[in-house]
Design a protein around this nucleic acid. Structure first.
Lengths: 209, 209
DNA sequence: CGATCAATTGAGACAAATCAACACCAGTGG
DNA sequence: CCACTGGTGTTGATTTGTCTCAATTGATCG
């Protein structure tokens, strides 16, 4: 399914301490829109994002998709409760992925912390999906990406509008309209389709409700 | 904040193998609508539901509430990523809670599995909140509770309509109307406000989409 | 420089929320 | 025993946020 390029890189950017003290391993480059693991694949392995962005997806029987998380440089993903993955993971934009652990197993408190971090984020996202308006959703999304990218003035959107929509529980048209609306209100400016400049961070904060 | 009754009970109903091999400890009874832990409380402890139902909640700044999970007999809750709880837990209907672990810590693969189970459920719920219609949400909810209660014909709703609504990302009026609609379609029957009989399980399954 | 896919924009439809009234208890006290 | 009361649930009328459908523009790439 996916093409594995023989790609390797020096050291992991230890962002946020997530990746601390994890063993080194070979890295793989996944071009845009290629699968990292599929639904039904044997679980156990954990992956570290070196660069690029990864999306974790679920789908309903009739094909509606929900993106449960985006993972960026320094973050670990691949957790599964059973023997098989119930979600699937894809590279969004071309991502370097390091295999961190073949058998997520016994006795690593580090792993537990990463799993709990994932759980915390998921709970936060439940609140967003269940109880926030479309505008609030987008404001929270921008704020979140901003913080994770470490720049409090710019947001680089690695993913297409459709992915943002599937992450926020909206349609891509609504996402597009909201971005327009933020622009009209002077909260943001579009440097390009994928580059957002935050003109009024305070106002953006307010919009998170 | 909460009244701790001196309550104790023999053995845990080991439903679904969740509670296997966890050490025994004192149990506490929490009357309906009392707090088990609050947002901001120090985290670390884990709790086992002996009987009754517990809700895990988050709230927005302006008070909108999302219930991220209900926990029933045999299930463990209390996981938190940081030093403090970002969610809060309350007894729904009067619940017996056993403290399972004071310091969720090092090297217990069992704990990791429980956390991963929680993560899996959360991801499932993200799909529900983000991509399912109101009717689908309720159908999934009934199905889920049915399975967890082990009776494929009856659902006992320990929680009020408002809690169901906050769990499914709806309003209680909509929940009420949907129940009515299910009844009109002959899918369910209300034995009482809190007791649902599934008349047509196959149809209910279909409604989950 | 077409061709293709992503993004934008508009008009209208619809699902669910909101606002509002009323019914149904269970508990309390007269 | 019955009226009273407050909470929970139901039902109705209406509004509204977001989706759907449709057309157009804009980017990207052989």
């Amino acid at each position: 399914m996916h093409i594995q390029h023989g790609f390797s890189r020096g050291s992991v950017k230890a962002r946020g301490g997530l990746a601390g003290a994890l063993p080194a391993a070979a890295a793989t480059f996944y071009p845009a829109d290629t699968a990292i693991y599929a639904q039904g694949d044997k679980s156990g392995a954990l992956y570290l994002v070196e660069f690029g962005t990864v999306r974790i997806c679920s789908v309903t029987a009739d094909g509606r998709r929900q993106i449960s998380a985006f993972h960026m440089a320094g973050e670990v993903f691949g957790f599964a409760s059973g023997a098989e993955h119930e979600t699937y993971a894809e590279s969004v934009d071309g991502a370097g992925i390091r295999l961190v652990r073949q058998q997520a197993g016994l006795a690593d408190p580090n792993i537990l912390n990463l799993a709990l971090q994932g759980l915390g984020r998921a709970q936060n996202h439940l609140l967003l999906l269940g109880r926030r308006t479309a505008a609030e959703k987008l404001a929270v999304f921008f704020t979140d990406v901003m913080e994770r990218q470490g720049d409090d003035r710019h947001v680089r959107l690695a993913m297409p509008r459709n992915d943002i929509a599937d992450y926020l529980g909206l349609t891509f048209e609504t996402v597009s309209r909201l971005i327009r609306s933020f622009k009209d209100q002077g909260v943001i400016r579009l440097k390009s389709v994928h580059e957002v400049e935050i003109l009024d961070p305070a106002r953006l904060e307010d919009m998170c409700a």
